[in-house]
């Protein structure tokens, strides 16, 4: 393969405790740590391993979002991506718009493989990879826990509810990653320095897709219903008696 495109998203770090704004217009993001979506980090790691195994020439990383996303692109470059593309958009965009913009990028870059996370941990949509594969008219292999590339075919093991499913797809194709595909590497300080010199190009969302009208309107954000405070018991007998009171065990 000449090129692998990895798509990443800047999200609130997975360790941050999420708080909904009191006025219900979103979640608190001011002063909150932002990171690469963990599933996308796995996608990048997989692409880097393919390149290191001599199966790919170049790893390109792309994202869509505000100028601040340069931080996450620089992290991706420090991990080992060769160059980065920022599709700049100040507005939140939905997965179909993301797919259309990334498709335009694919037309320009002609990658043989596109890897991205199965879902972003902010909106939890789990749509972008599938929609990208569709507008591109190419195969998708979602929820990958194993990826083998052999010539023009990828063999992908997928984590599905019933167990592990293996499918074969012709390249070019879109692969979305699950947690157990790999463990991403840590970034070392010298790599961060080197990453500053790697190319990072900025494109305007509007230059890639004309259709950016939102597909859905977010009308209200609310905290989840809280569960009532539980009780502590101090013995197995007390636990069994509590379960019997609730009619949960005979």
């Amino acid at each position: 393969m000449n090129k692998i495109l990895v798509c990443i998203k800047r999200v609130v770090d997975y360790n941050v405790r999420i708080r909904v704004k009191p006025d219900g217009t979103g979640v608190v993001t001011d002063g909150v740590k932002m990171s690469i979506n963990p599933f996308d980090e796995i996608a990048l790691e997989e692409a880097l391993r393919l390149r290191e195994a001599g199966k790919a020439g170049e790893v390109i990383v792309a994202t869509i979002g505000p100028a601040d996303c340069q931080q996450q692109l620089r992290t991706a470059l420090a991990m080992g991506a060769d160059r980065a593309l920022l599709i700049e958009s100040s507005a939140e965009i939905d997965p179909l718009t993301a797919a259309r913009a990334l498709h335009a990028l694919i037309a320009r870059e002609q990658p043989e493989l596109v890897i991205l996370g199965k879902q972003a941990i902010d909106d939890d949509c789990n749509q972008t990879g599938q929609m990208l594969a569709t507008v591109w008219g190419r195969p998708q292999a979602t929820f990958a826990s194993r990826l083998e590339v052999d010539g023009s075919v990828a063999r992908v093991t997928r984590e599905v509810d019933a167990g592990l499913e293996t499918i074969e797809v012709d390249l070019p194709a879109v692969v979305t990653t699950d947690l157990r595909l790999n463990e991403p590497r840590y970034v070392k300080l010298p790599d961060i320095m080197k990453a500053k010199k790697k190319p990072l190009e900025t494109l305007a969302l509007g230059d890639l897709t004309a259709d950016t009208a939102p597909q859905l309107t977010a009308t209200k954000w609310a905290p989840p219903a809280s569960r009532s405070k539980g009780v502590r018991v101090d013995s197995v007998d007390a636990l069994i008696s509590a379960l019997k009171d609730k009619g949960l065990v005979a």
Partner: peptide, 23 residues
């Protein structure tokens, strides 16, 4: 919203040129 539907429905939505409401 099982792995079956999560894999399939966005592909249906994109073919129909619409977004998807997940979950």
């Amino acid at each position: 919203s099982t792995t079956f539907g999560k894999d399939l429905m966005p592909r249906v939505a994109a073919l129909l040129n619409v977004g998807q409401v997940s979950d």
